[in-house]
Structure formats: structure tokens, C-alpha cells
Amino acid sequence: MSNVATFDTRTEAKIPVESPLAYSYRRSGAPAPTAKSRVVLRERPFLGHLVLRGGAIVLDEAVREVLGVTLPGEPQGLVHDADGRRSIQWISPDEWLVIVPGGEEFELENRLREALGGAHFAISNVGGGQTLLELEGEAARELLMKSVVYDVHPSHFPVGKGVTTVFAKTTVILRRPSEERWELVVRRSFADYTYRWLLDAGDEYGIGVER
């Protein structure tokens, strides 16, 4: 532990926080969903995001012990814990993205470090640098077809899959946690561009934003 500087970047103090979309809401507004909205967008801000690097076997053991889920060892795998609030996603053969309720990440990092002991691994906290957007509704898939180069047809993109791919002129981590819902993990600095793109491309489906 002493060889790596862990740092809790959060505070319990009552400090105003701004999600990556805070500026976008002020600049571009957030059309409220209506009965005619065929797709709804929702930001899930301030979650805990950790990047986990290391060998699958050694990480799997620690993740089972600490998170109680099996590390998805196969490419594009995405698994959730029993109550669905914690997920772990395959990013690369030695990289996984863990998303947990905000505030849990520092303790989780410490517990994983403890469980991993002297193994070669890395954990980076990236929660301030990305946010999670959800898309729901019958037009969500077509909206994604306008935006990402990856094939989002259900036969190719079943529930439990996640990929990093091209979104318009930026990148996104796209996940499908359930039949109805898609998740986009977006980098903070690109969040406004992504948001404006989704509003523009979603206009014909009467896109609404839940806040």
C-alpha cells in the first residue's frame, strides 16, 4: 500500500458539486419528457468509477471477495451485483470498469488493494472525469444507430454487453444493463458535446430529459 498513494478525492463536507452536465443544462436546457417522448435521457451523476488493471485470475478472486460478483472474463462482458447498483465491465484483457454508488469507491479501492496484496495491479479513481447517461424508450436504439458505429441490434448487443466505441466524433462506453435501458459512460470534457448531439438527434423522437 505504501508504494501507491491512495487519495480520497471526496469530502463529507457540504460542498457544492457540479456534474459534468451542469453547464449543459444551463446552456442548452433540458426538455421535460412528455407522453409523446419516445426516448428519455437521464444523467446518473456522482457515481464512483474505478479503473481496475491486472490479470483476470488474480482480479477475479479479489472482486468476488470484495464485490461478491464474478469478474467478467470474456470480452464485452458486463455484470451487476444482486441489487443492480454495482457493476463491473470488461474493457480490455487487463482492464475493467467498476461503477458503484457514489462515496463507496474509496473504501472499495482500499479493500481491493488489501485483497490483492502483492499482486501486480493498478486501480485508478476516475469518478470526477466521467458521468453515466441512461437512455430509455422505444426509439433509444434508433437514436444510438444515429450516433455510434457499433451494431446495436439486439441479436448483436444483448443485455449484459458493453463496448468502447465511436460516438459521433468522440468516444463512449456503451452498455446494455437491461432490455429497456442503455448506458453511456461519457468523459466529462466531452459530456456537453454528447448531450447536445443526443438532444439534436433525439428531437424527432421527442426526446425528454429527466432530472
Binding site: P75, Q76, S92, P93, V149, Y150, V163, T164, T165, V166
Partner: peptide, 10 residues
């Protein structure tokens, strides 16, 4: 590594 065909843009 991903075990899939992917678009050149990636």
C-alpha cells in the same frame, strides 16, 4: 483481443 470485427474508425 475483443474477438470481434469492428469498424476502422475505432
Amino acid at each position: 483481443y475483443c474477438g470481434e470485427l469492428r469498424e476502422e474508425e475505432e
